[in-house]
């Protein structure tokens, strides 16, 4: 299996406002969220980005989704450069993160069609795909209920389906099971596995060890914006549980004993 996504020295620095500086107890005007991060993802695998909150996982995924531009470094998604060919990248990925919201006023049904149109999905393909996805996630029951009236789990299901209306070959999910009850979380986890079965490539960020152990072929551990370790699960764990291996790595990197 070849590399389908290659990240090279991706770096992103944010300017801190005076208030943020106070909150962080720092006088530094800039904060490096992602620091020369490199990794690659192979076709057809589920790759996990594991790390604590604030490690730079979401920032990395936002750069891959072309929502923000890296300060330096780049990434190739299916051969398309995220900086130079953002449109081609957007066409080939499905991106899901908590900050992408659906308009409360519309129904999942309407939004599915709207986003299909934005992705240029032909009408006949759209209908069949919608039927299949709505059935799979049980959206049929609330397809015509306004998003504003849906529960968190229902909204997340709708968001997932809408992020893949164009049947992308690479799917990037940021914390896809966050805030979901166990039943909905299982639907999502099972779906990730079925995507791999269809030959799709999935990149997911999470801080949940069990999710990585359950679905990921390989994972990278991100600490303070850098890649602390990257490899298959056995390579990462080295005989320990993933959780223990992570905390050892964390202590080694930051000097903080957890």
């Amino acid at each position: 299996m070849g590399e389908i996504l290659t990240v090279r020295d991706l770096t992103k620095t944010f300017r801190l406002s005076a208030r943020q500086q106070r909150r962080e107890g720092s006088r530094e005007k800039y904060k490096t969220a992602v620091d020369r991060l490199s990794f690659s993802v192979r076709e057809g695998e589920i790759f996990g980005l594991l790390g604590p909150n604030g490690a730079g996982k979401t920032t990395t995924l936002r750069m891959l989704a072309t929502l923000i531009r890296p300060d330096s470094g780049t990434a190739l998604v299916l051969g398309h450069d995220i900086v130079r060919e953002p449109d081609a990248v957007r066409r080939s990925i499905g991106f899901l993160t908590g900050e992408l919201k659906l308009e409360d006023y519309f129904t999942p049904n309407y939004l599915y069609d709207f986003f299909s149109e934005l992705h240029g999905v032909p009408g006949e393909v759209r209908g069949a795909r919608k039927k299949m996805l709505f059935e799979r996630f049980g959206i049929d029951e609330f397809a015509d209920v306004k998003v504003g009236n849906l529960s968190t789990g229902m909204k997340q299901k709708a968001s997932i389906v809408i992020s893949i209306v164009h049947d992308p070959s690479i799917i990037i999910f940021d914390e896809p099971t966050n805030g979901l009850d166990v039943l909905t979380a299982k639907v999502v986890t099972d779906y990730l596995i079925s995507l791999r079965r269809q030959g799709k490539t999935v990149i997911l960020s999470t801080h949940i060890f069990s999710l990585v152990e359950k679905v990921c072929d390989r994972a990278g551990v991100v600490i303070d914006g850098t890649m602390a370790a990257c490899g298959t699960l056995p390579e990462l764990c080295r005989g320990k549980s993933l959780e223990d291996a992570f905390f050892d790595l964390y202590t080694e990197r930051t000097g903080v004993r957890v």
Binding site: K101, L102, E103, L118, S163
Partner: peptide
């Protein structure tokens, strides 16, 4: 409401 970001990750110009 964060809904414009959802539109911006699509290839719309």
């Amino acid at each position: 409401r964060g809904t414009i970001t959802t539109i911006l990750v699509t290839p719309i110009r």
